[in-house]
Simulated scan of single mutants.
Amino acid sequence: MKNRKKMGRPTDNPKVDSLNVRLDKESSEILKKYAEKYNITRTESARIGIKKLKEDL
């Protein structure tokens, strides 16, 4: 199979990896409230949370 480049908006930060995760009720609620507070998606909220983990490394 050939690797075809998908058409879409150009970006400086392409999202090439995918992650499917199951959340408990508390984690899901935290993510939802954060997204609502900052008017962003739950996905973007999760990315922000992951970047905050970098501080612990």
Rank of each mutant, 00 (worst) to 15 (best):
K54G: 01
L23P: 03
E44M: 05
K37C: 09
L23G: 03
A46M: 12
R4H: 10
T41R: 08
R22V: 14
D12E: 13
A35V: 05
K52P: 00
M7D: 11
E55S: 11
R42M: 13
K37R: 10
N3Q: 12
G8K: 02
K52M: 11
K37Q: 11
V21P: 01
P10W: 04
L19Y: 08
K2P: 15
R42P: 02
E29T: 10
K37F: 07
R9H: 06
I50M: 15
I40R: 07
L53P: 03
L57Y: 04
V21K: 03
L53E: 07
L57I: 08
E29S: 13
M7H: 10
S28G: 03
D17C: 08
D56K: 15
T41G: 04
K37E: 13
Y38G: 04
K25E: 12
E44A: 09
D17I: 13
E29V: 07
N39W: 02
T41S: 15
N3E: 14
M7S: 14
S28D: 11
R22L: 13
R9C: 06
K51V: 09
E36P: 01
R9L: 08
S45Q: 03
N3C: 05
R22I: 14
K54H: 05
D24A: 03
R9Q: 10
D17P: 00
P10Y: 07
K33G: 00
G49F: 14
I48D: 06
I30P: 00
N20M: 10
Y38K: 12
S28M: 14
L57T: 02
V16D: 10
K6H: 12
K15N: 13
E55H: 13
K33E: 12
